[in-house]
Design a protein around this nucleic acid. Sequence first.
DNA 1: CTGAAAGCGCTTACAG
DNA 2: CTGAAAGCGCTTACAG
Lengths: 335, 335
Amino acid sequence: MKKASIKDIARIAGVSVATVSYVLNKKEGQRISVETKKKIFEVAETINYTPNRMARSLKNNRTKLLGLIVADISNEFYSTIARNLEDNALKLGYTLIIGSSDENAEKFEKLIELFSQQQVDGMIVAPVAGSEDSLLKLLNKNYPVVTIDRYLKGVNVPGIIVNNREIAERTTSILLEKDFDKIIYVGYDTKLQHLLDRQQGFDASISESNKNIAVERIKVGLDNITEEIHNQLANALGQNPKNTALYLSSNKLAVAGLSYLIKNNIKVPQDVSVLAFDETEAYKLFPTEISYVKQPLEQMTDEAIKLLDLQINEYSNTSKKIILSGDLIIKKSIK
Amino acid sequence: MKKASIKDIARIAGVSVATVSYVLNKKEGQRISVETKKKIFEVAETINYTPNRMARSLKNNRTKLLGLIVADISNEFYSTIARNLEDNALKLGYTLIIGSSDENAEKFEKLIELFSQQQVDGMIVAPVAGSEDSLLKLLNKNYPVVTIDRYLKGVNVPGIIVNNREIAERTTSILLEKDFDKIIYVGYDTKLQHLLDRQQGFDASISESNKNIAVERIKVGLDNITEEIHNQLANALGQNPKNTALYLSSNKLAVAGLSYLIKNNIKVPQDVSVLAFDETEAYKLFPTEISYVKQPLEQMTDEAIKLLDLQINEYSNTSKKIILSGDLIIKKSIK
DNA sequence: CTGAAAGCGCTTACAG
DNA sequence: CTGAAAGCGCTTACAG
């Protein structure tokens, strides 16, 4: 069964397609008689007309589609972002196309390519390591784009940035005031700048301090996080850790790290204090309430859509960066 | 800067748009000279040509877009499904558009409408209560659609179904064999059939059994789950629960229920045994490993895409239902 | 108040 | 081996 078009409406209503188009789009200025209007709406209703946005897009050069590229949509952090973006996008009449890059620059590039072909009006992307060229290509084409969660050094694309370095530095200082014997930072072996920023913030805080404290840094790859962390934590914590602090620098690392503590029956905060980056539902099931750095996800997504919409509508070639901060939510996991 | 089109390529290469189209689409049958081909590819490269899929769609009646409607993309269950679908879709050349219905029939209808307008080739939907009409409309238009996770009674639309009733019945029986004094089923106050099926399975198992066991059913609304469950569990479990079993019938309910247990320091499984429906990362942080019903998510999404692709390509008006089962993963939370 | 016509960027049957 | 032309479903400046 062929879909009804405005041609069909025009034929049945005995008017021109132009008139149908004007009426359905409720354009002012063109004065169409009330009867004609009524007739057209009736016909549209009875033949079950659904406008074809793709045809409109071809004329308008606007698809009302937005592309979102994250590392992995099944990661709670990104699915929460996606949800916020969805709501914001819908308010402005946009629909979201979503893709996961798996931290793979080639896949990232393919998604960009695919979304361009689908003629999305703009993209919100969490760039992966090595995606400089893909982003620059978009910039050169003047394609509206906003980075989120991450940024690439030396690529001047508009984006929402969280001051990870400062947050890490500040929160580490808070740990340092507590007179722990040992502090362990759990991070990634990565080239992602926003994660390096966290490590640098941690390092800066440590070297500024004149405390006599043992410092250990654990770095894990992206695969097999749980196993790697469990092994490395076993070494770093030893059999019977005391007066130790653990800085878990992402939600994934937090879940992996905490699962080690729970398995090995290590008391939080009595023996090991914990500070995590990012929130996760999972904290609810841990015996001790977890202290964490809360990123301003809602603000991030609000600003991202705004910044993107601006570029789309103004054709303006901004390179604006919006820098946001995070809050430290102190709970019982720090003694 | 205007985007390059095949017209531009044709002009620069000194050939017709038809030829360009044939070459870029690598159509066989039309024999184009090697030089012409080479020239066209070169020009396309230098002017940075990106094909416009929307224009192609208009001719083809195929957008290669698939709509996915879930209750909430930020729910781990659905984001996992989304991720699986994304991967499967990509393999077949489709891109996913995602929307969250919030269990709201109006919003569901709006998303369907929106996706139709975007001319998605097909939809994968988790229908909400009261969405019968929306689904029937799609069916009448012969729109390719597959339901997932849920189904609506009396609406004969193709879908992937999990035999929730049987699973609940079977797993409840396993609990009943353990000679608990009391068993508490935590479910939703809902009209969603797949959730009612779970309750009915539970009920059936209880009434078949001739055990003398106290049974309590807790039903919570969709909002404020955590608070509601905590209150009701406080009543149902009392101060000092012993030899009790808890059936938590979804991942959200599991997190809410387990968080009550952890807060109140109730020993699992010594005092309260726990069986949950669905998996969640959060289990990793609970002191006792949780036994749960694992739904075959991968199989669900594989079959969903297959079933949808079939409808899209064959124009076949199937009403096929694929019924899958779940596995009970027994861990230490059941004594 | 309404319509004829051009055009958005493609594809494809047909002709040569 | 290649091109002219129609057409997908819309929008919109222009004419009347």
